[in-house]
Amino acid sequence: MSHDVNYRKLFTPAKYRLIRELQTPKRLAELSRQLKISKQAVHAHLQELIRIGFVKKSGNMFFITKTGKIFLDKVREVTELTSVLTNLGEFLNTHDLTPIPHEMLLKIGDLQNAKVAVRKPYEIDERFLSIISDSKWVLGLSTVYHPEYPSIFCKLSTKANVCLILQKDIYEKVRKRNYDELVDYLRRGEMYICEGANLNFIVSESGLIMGLYTNDGIYDSSSFLICRSKSASEWGAKLFRYYLKKSQKIFNP
């Protein structure tokens, strides 16, 4: 059955709050009390939501339907996306986002509570170490060379599952300048080579750190995104798998 839906009236904060409350069945009076709006107003909202199939009534109880749950999840996703874009807008607008696949940009709402962190250019930041130091697994992609990275990840591979992707020219620098550490690392950890990534990130179960290039094509060594959440770890791991498919595994340096 089709319905003529006034979407402008449907997408209101009151209806969103109402559907969210109905994840557990409730009576009209309880909804009115929790939402702090009159029974008449709640009843009017409920009737519209029932008409389009997002809510059902059984006896004196109202509850969310399967389609209502789908709607709730999508609104929550948009709300989270709006929050992240508002919080990180200036940083994202001034940096190159093309290395991040479009489908992952649409899921950037997973980076709830992400912050832009300032650092001294090319210094090893304590927040970076805190993401990897006590982790059971670490995934990373790097398009910049730092003389301390080979030693850090070589030691890390003795206690964690580590898999790294290096841009080809960075791998060659490591191979030339840190050959012994590279050989030692490859006894335990995995390494891949890619080209044209133009971003840097490290992800573990503790969170995500990501560095980007500016819109002028210059790597921003003075700031990065940091997010400590399970959803950020999952987002970062998915981004890593995207680049892993484009990379070639190194077996012998």
Results as ranks from 00 to 15, higher is better:
S157A: 09
K246H: 10
E190D: 04
Y242A: 04
A114D: 02
D184Q: 09
T12E: 12
L208Q: 10
Q47Y: 13
R127V: 12
F251K: 08
F224I: 07
K176H: 06
L239G: 05
L49C: 12
R241I: 06
A29I: 15
Y192W: 09
Y145G: 01
P25E: 12
Q112S: 05
K230M: 08
K66S: 13
V78A: 01
P147D: 08
N178R: 07
K246N: 02
H3D: 06
R119C: 08
R127F: 09
T143S: 04
Y122H: 00
K230D: 09
L85M: 10
R76D: 08
V5P: 11
L225W: 12
V116Q: 03
Y179E: 14
L105K: 00
Q23D: 05
L46V: 11
C163L: 03
G53L: 02
N215K: 12
I37Y: 15
K159L: 00
V162R: 08
T79S: 12
Y219C: 01
F91K: 09
V118R: 01
G217P: 14
K120I: 01
K57A: 03
Y192L: 12
I64P: 07
N198S: 12
I108D: 08
R76V: 09
V183N: 10
F128K: 00
P150A: 05
D220H: 05
L164T: 11
N200P: 00
S135E: 07
E190T: 08
R228F: 07
S206K: 11
Y219A: 01
S223T: 10
V116F: 06
V84A: 08
T94D: 02
H3Y: 04
I50R: 06
N60F: 14
V183E: 15
P253K: 12
L111T: 04
L129Y: 14
A232Y: 02
K246L: 14
I152P: 05
F62D: 15
K136A: 10
R228Y: 03
I52M: 13
T79Q: 04
V78E: 12
G109T: 04
H45W: 07
S58Y: 13
K245Q: 15
N93I: 14
N161Q: 06
E181W: 15
I131Y: 01
L81P: 00
R241S: 13
K15M: 02
G211K: 01
E21C: 07
A237K: 14
P121R: 04
I209F: 08
